[in-house]
Write a protein that binds this DNA or RNA. Sequence first.
RNA 1: GGCGGGUUGGCGGAGAGGUUACGCAGCGGAUUGCAAAUCCGUGAAGACCGGUUCGAUUCCGGUACCCGCCUCCA
Length: 480
Amino acid sequence: MVEIRLTNTRTRRKDPFQPLDPQNVRLYLCGPTVYDRAHLGNARPVLVFDVLVRLLRHVYGEGAVTYVRNFTDVDDKINARAAATGRTIREITDETIAWYHDDMDALGALRPDHEPRATEFIPQMVAMIGHLIERGHAYAAEGHVLFDVRSFPAYGRLSGRSVDDMIAGARVEVAPFKRDPMDFVLWKPSGADQPGWDSPWGRGRPGWHIECSAMSEALLGPSFDIHGGGIDLQFPHHENEVAQSCCARPEASFANVWLHNEMLQVEGKKMSKSLGNFFTVRDLLDQGVPGEVIRFVMLSTHYRKPMDWTEAKAREAERHIEKWFYALVHAGYSRSMVRVLKEGGAWKPLDAVVDALANDLNTSGALAALHEFDLSGRAVQLAPFAASLDLLGFVSDWDEIGSIARIGVSSVGDHPANERVAMLLLARQEAKRMKDFATADRIRKALQDVGVELRDMPGGGYSFSLPADFDERKLDELIR
RNA sequence: GGCGGGUUGGCGGAGAGGUUACGCAGCGGAUUGCAAAUCCGUGAAGACCGGUUCGAUUCCGGUACCCGCCUCCA
């Protein structure tokens, strides 16, 4: 069996992965707070975990992995959005969850086995909070329940900080009812205009961290294998989860492996609304950037390094995707072809790809192995390459790879001018066939002048892409 | 102020104490009515200063610079 090694934030080492139960490998990923479209940074942990889950299923078996990712649907940002729009919280969260599914589906991310909503696990949270109070790890004060960080000596271990150092750094606002400045909220009171649930401490709502402790325990048990999220969640969110879960269940281990991905930047800068470089996954998809291209760019940087999204990378990624998919289409790949190859036992990803992924999810190394593969063979010879693409999650539908590769006169995206350009390409092809090179060159020139990228692919196909600022009227003038 | 991470060839980006990463661009060639694409080949690196070692870009220490977290954030 392939040995998977993962960098564990808890041990600060790259350790061999040992599942608690190889028949049921269990993972939990902190999901989104659902009040708005997912931005590009939100996609990174999703894709990292997607590849991890695919790898684990490859190694331990399709049915041997349970993947949980939550939706945080109770949060002050959601309340604010509801107040600002006059809509109900449920409308907003339902809509946002639907968007999230659309966007992550477009990136080829598998749906988790469970996607619990925080609001569906309030009783479990209340029970866990009560348990923490009983055990002397939490206390009620002025309608709040707070976790007592001094009661948990290991507090700070996951993120490598000490309570005293953090207080010395003193940038936390200290509520007067806190015993210690670092104590954090498990439960807080709700006003009449805020969502709330009855509890032993009055009507209120949960603090941010308790939901993940409660839901992971409910769905995966008090001890499970892998817990992940962005590095920014390491403190305080994950630290607090550890404190809650380990104090509520001292006999259990909670998460054995902690996986944290580094942040995303855009053109070398932190993505932020003030810098004007903030965009969502949907923005990119609407601009015609295929989900496969977004995935490629994401996987081209190791998850523990800051990832810089640039247009240059997206362009480069698009070239590779088109080239790879083109080769597969040319070799006859389709759903039925893949079925035949699987039945024939040819469906095995490249060892170099699996080995790279097993080495702390070296997705960049996996892509490098794909670059080296000879694409000139026929379907059976390309099967290891295709199975590798499949393992990396690049293919949702083998019948669609042709259109993603923009083969022939087809194109992706829904630009209204695609049809026009396609017609012109056919006209050019006909002109070339008639040796009317003047006409052929005139069409090419016109397309080039409006910025259409045109390529003849090996085997006689055509590929084109429209520029972002494509202007159809200009094309009309030039063609006339 | 506290904590953590990074610095690789023109650009992007990996692994490994000693052997070609890989991609893009460049250069040379093949192919093509022309262009692009495609195919083959090829030069180029490890912030700085010390230390360990037969040998370090890879381990250790220091310096500089960059980034993130400590407050909602993936």
